[in-house]
């Protein structure tokens, strides 16, 4: 495993006080990740809209957890306040720049889902990034998505039973696909060594170091 011993930008290790500033370095890396997911989201929207048209809103709900992957992965890697929200806004922005037909609603959803995921990390004062917190971020992000489409697409006119089923499907999907899946992807990325400058990379290196000693 290529473990790069050269650690951290001097600029970034200095800024580790109360509220670490999100620097250019964080932004470009976060943007690169979010842009990849933005393209993935766009493909997923086509797939999701097809599924909704054929199988209905509950089936769509099962797929929905995909849309909170970018904020969860970026927050888990970089671990600074605001990352989840900004990552989701960039991912939504990518969909718009790539020509999403539903740009307006996509941006709205990016904002609310980002805020939802961000809330989970804020609740733990940006100190806890373990699996349960990531899953909570997925759940809150999906809940925010649900509230948004509830008003945007008039779910109050629908049968309560269907809407409840959809909400449950979305929350489970957010926890599993978003929280658990996001952690799996980020950990796999961390093991390649490209994240060594970030909080996650440092944590992974410490873990493997301890195993080596014991």
């Amino acid at each position: 495993m290529a473990n790069n011993p050269m650690s951290g930008h001097p600029k970034h290790s200095r800024g580790q006080q109360r509220a670490p500033r999100i620097g250019l370095y964080d932004i470009v890396v976060m943007a690169a990740i979010s842009i990849v997911f933005g393209v993935l989201y766009l493909l997923w929207i086509f797939f999701g809209q097809f599924v909704q048209a054929m199988l209905g809103p509950v089936a769509w709900g099962i797929l929905a957890g995909m849309w909170v992957l970018a904020p969860i992965i970026c927050a888990y890697i970089i671990r600074k306040p605001g990352i989840a929200l900004i990552a989701e806004l960039i991912a939504a922005g990518t969909e718009v720049l790539a020509g999403s037909v539903n740009a307006g609603v996509v941006m709205l959803l990016g904002l609310t889902q980002g805020l939802g995921a961000e809330l989970a990390f804020a609740l733990f004062r940006y100190r806890n990034y373990r699996l349960p917190v990531l899953m909570l971020a997925g759940i809150l992000g999906m809940f925010a998505n649900f509230i948004t489409i509830y008003f945007v697409y008039g779910y109050d006119h629908l049968s309560t039973l269907i809407v409840t089923f959809q909400l449950v499907a979305m929350l489970i999907s957010g926890a599993v696909m978003g929280g658990w899946g996001g952690k799996a992807i980020a950990d796999a990325l961390g093991r390649t060594g490209v994240l060594n400058r970030f909080a996650l990379g440092k944590e992974l290196r410490e873990e493997s170091g301890n195993h080596g000693l014991s």
């Binding site: 600029k11 370095y25 470009v28 796999a188 990325l189 490209v194």
Partner: peptide, 26 residues
């Protein structure tokens, strides 16, 4: 495919960010 692709994107971002910072892009 996903992991090598994302890892490549992060490496590229890394280099671009350093280049931008060295040109005073803050």
């Amino acid at each position: 495919y996903a992991i090598p692709l994302l890892a490549g994107a992060i490496r590229k971002a890394d280099r671009v960010a350093i280049a931008m910072e060295s040109k005073g892009f803050d």
